[in-house]
């Protein structure tokens, strides 16, 4: 039982980390960034190349992966999302373009690295330590810790700093922010870079925990979107809550039901949440509007 809860929390931390960046982009850019999983998978594979092929240490490789993910985010913003925004693209249009990007990135990775899983883990698999009757590996502790640290710094950054205030201003209204002398495009680029760094961090951590496959980004995308919808898009609290809820529901569900229903439960939950409230359980605390 404790093991099931621990697994749920570890998975949930990964989803929350992903949902954090996804929600940031959604609140400021006002579209479903379906290519967020692109940074996730590219960050993880870049780390794999740096660690296994170049021979850097895990930490340096991981930093390189995060950097690569951030650069990919900046490229997506500059090459696709910014031009589309300038053309007044509809939200559906942005959704579709992002979905198209995700398909391209996933298959690009699959062309380069093949569909077979690759292993990033450098050390041998350890049994992990016992914590309240559940076995947790160091990497898994690291995932939960990173998630909480990232959420805390995102919250502090958004609520307490001047830059965070500017981001919230842009999230609230692009036009008003422009009137007050802010440059929404620059802010949106910055948000995309930070969000993509978070996304690739989530990918790299999960890469150290399990294997890498080209479809991992798409899977994370699905779960991250689910977490965002369940928790409420556009708040740090909502991403955390949603991530952990999805992780726990997924693992607790399996405890009672056959494993093949794991994802069906999650997405049924998403559909129910969408029906009840399109914004999820928590109201956004950023004052976004459509």
């Amino acid at each position: 039982m404790m093991q099931v809860i621990a697994n749920g929390i570890v998975a949930g931390a990964g989803y929350a980390l992903f949902a954090l960046g996804f929600g940031l982009v959604h609140s400021t850019g006002r579209f479903f960034h379906m290519a967020h999983g692109g940074s996730y998978v590219v960050g993880a594979y870049l780390t794999y190349v740096l660690v296994s092929k170049v021979g850097l240490s895990s930490l340096v490789g991981g930093c390189g992966g995060v950097l690569g993910g951030a650069v990919l985010g900046a490229m997506m913003e500059i090459a696709v999302f910014r031009p589309l925004r300038r053309r007044n693209a509809s939200r559906e249009g942005m959704f579709l373009a992002a979905l198209g990007l995700m398909v391209c990135i996933q298959n690009g990775v699959s062309l380069v690295f093949g569909d077979q899983p690759v292993v990033l883990r450098t050390a041998s698999v350890e049994p992990g330590m016992l914590f309240l009757g559940a076995r947790i590996t160091n990497v898994q502790v690291c995932i939960v810790a990173t998630c909480i640290a990232a959420a805390a710094s995102a919250w502090i950054g958004l609520q307490k700093t001047n830059l965070g205030m500017r981001i919230r201003a842009v999230a609230s209204s692009h036009e008003l922010a422009t009137v007050y002398g802010l440059r929404p495009e620059a802010i949106l680029l910055l948000v995309m870079v930070c969000a993509s760094a978070l996304g690739s961090l989530a990918g790299i951590l999960s890469g150290f925990d399990t294997d890498l496959t080209p479809s991992m980004g798409f899977y994370a995308q699905l779960m991250g979107v689910a977490a965002s919808i369940v928790g409420g898009i556009g708040s740090v609290r909502g991403s955390l809550l949603g991530g952990f809820m999805v992780g726990l529901v997924q693992h607790l569900g399996v405890w009672k039901l056959p494993t093949q229903w794991q994802e069906a439960i999650v997405f049924a939950l998403v559909a129910v949440c969408l029906c009840i409230r399109a914004r999820g359980f928590l109201r956004t605390n950023w004052g976004t509007k459509d």
Partner: peptide, 15 residues
């Protein structure tokens, strides 16, 4: 994927 992106670029307001 590229086709999707290209079409959104061509008809950004509505498909």
């Amino acid at each position: 994927g590229l086709a999707l992106i290209a079409i959104v670029f061509l008809r950004p307001r509505g498909l």
